[in-house]
C-alpha cells in the first residue's frame, strides 16, 4: 500500500488514455451495451410470460410478485457468484442475474398497465364486437404502453448500473475498466468507466423516453406505479 501515496498525485483523468486505449474503451462500451440489451430482452420475455400468467390467473399474482421481489433482494454479488460453478465466468453467468433483477420492475409495471385499462373501456370494446385478440392488441396493449415504457426505462437504467458489478466475474463492460484501474491504482480507466456507464444509462433512458412519447401520443404524462 506504500505505492498508493505515489498514486495520490496521479491525475483523475489522463486525456491521452482516450487515444491510446480507445479500442479498449470502445470494446468495453459495446460489451456493456450488449450485456444490457441481452439482459433486458431476456427479462422482458420472461416478464411477458409471468405477467400473462398473473393476469390470467389472479391467484398467481401474489406469488409471482413475491418471487420477483425475492429475486430483487438477492445481493448482486451473491447472484453473480452463485452461478459461477455452473456457467463459469461466462456471459450467461452475467446475463441471467441481470435479467432476474429486471423481473420485479417489469412484471409489476406490465400487470399495472393492463390493470389500468378501465372496465368501461373493456366493456365498450367487447360490446362493439372486438375479438379477444383484437381487444388485447388494439385496446389493452396500447393503453398499458405508458406503464410498459416506464418499467422499461427503470429496468434499462438499473441494468446499465448493475452490469458494472458483473465485472467481478470477468464480464461487465465498463465495469472492467473500473476494476482494472483499481487493480493498477490507475484512475483514468476508473473515472472513464464510471462516467461512461452513467452517461450510457442517461442516453438509453432518453432514447426510450423519446420512443415512448412517440408511441403514446395520447398520454402527455408518463405513468408509473413504482
Amino acid at each position: 500500500m506504500a505505492g498508493l501515496l505515489a498514486q495520490a498525485t496521479n491525475p483523475i483523468i489522463r486525456w491521452e488514455y482516450f487515444i491510446d486505449e480507445w479500442d479498449q474503451i470502445q470494446r468495453a462500451l459495446i460489451e456493456h451495451l450488449e450485456l444490457t440489451v441481452y439482459a433486458v430482452i431476456l427479462g422482458f420475455v420472461l416478464s411477458v410470460g409471468l405477467s400473462a400468467v398473473a393476469l390470467r390467473y389472479r391467484w398467481s399474482a401474489g406469488p409471482i410478485n413475491g418471487f420477483t421481489a425475492f429475486l430483487y433482494t438477492i445481493p448482486s454479488v451473491a447472484l453473480f457468484a452463485i452461478l459461477v460453478p455452473y456457467f463459469g465466468l461466462s456471459r450467461i453467468t452475467a446475463v441471467v442475474p441481470l435479467a432476474a433483477y429486471t423481473l420485479l420492475i417489469l412484471v409489476t409495471n406490465f400487470v399495472a398497465g393492463f390493470n389500468s385499462v378501465s372496465p368501461e373501456v373493456r366493456e365498450a370494446a367487447a360490446g362493439m364486437g372486438m375479438t379477444p385478440a383484437r381487444r388485447v392488441l388494439h385496446v389493452e396493449l396500447p393503453l398499458a404502453m405508458p406503464y410498459i415504457i416506464a418499467g422499461l426505462r427503470i429496468a434499462v437504467v438499473s441494468t446499465v448500473g448493475l452490469v458494472t458489478v458483473a465485472a467481478i466475474i470477468g464480464q461487465g463492460g465498463l465495469g472492467r475498466l473500473i476494476l482494472d484501474g483499481l487493480r493498477r491504482t490507475f484512475w483514468t480507466p476508473m473515472t472513464i468507466g464510471s462516467l461512461l456507464s452513467i452517461l450510457l444509462a442517461l442516453a438509453l433512458d432518453g432514447i426510450i423516453l423519446v420512443a415512448g412519447r412517440w408511441a403514446t401520443p395520447w398520454a402527455q404524462r408518463q405513468k408509473s406505479v413504482l
Binding site: 420492475i105 427503470i154 437504467v157 438499473s158 446499465v160 448500473g161 448493475l162 458494472t164 458489478v165 465485472a167 465498463l174 465495469g175 473500473i178 484501474g181 483499481l182 476508473m190 473515472t191 468507466g193 464510471s194 462516467l195 456507464s197 452513467i198 444509462a201 433512458d205 413504482l226
Partner: peptide, 11 residues
C-alpha cells in the same frame, strides 16, 4: 432504481 453504485464508488 437507477443509481449505479459501483460506478459512483468507482468515481
Amino acid at each position: 432504481r437507477a443509481i449505479p453504485t459501483f460506478a459512483v464508488a468507482g468515481l
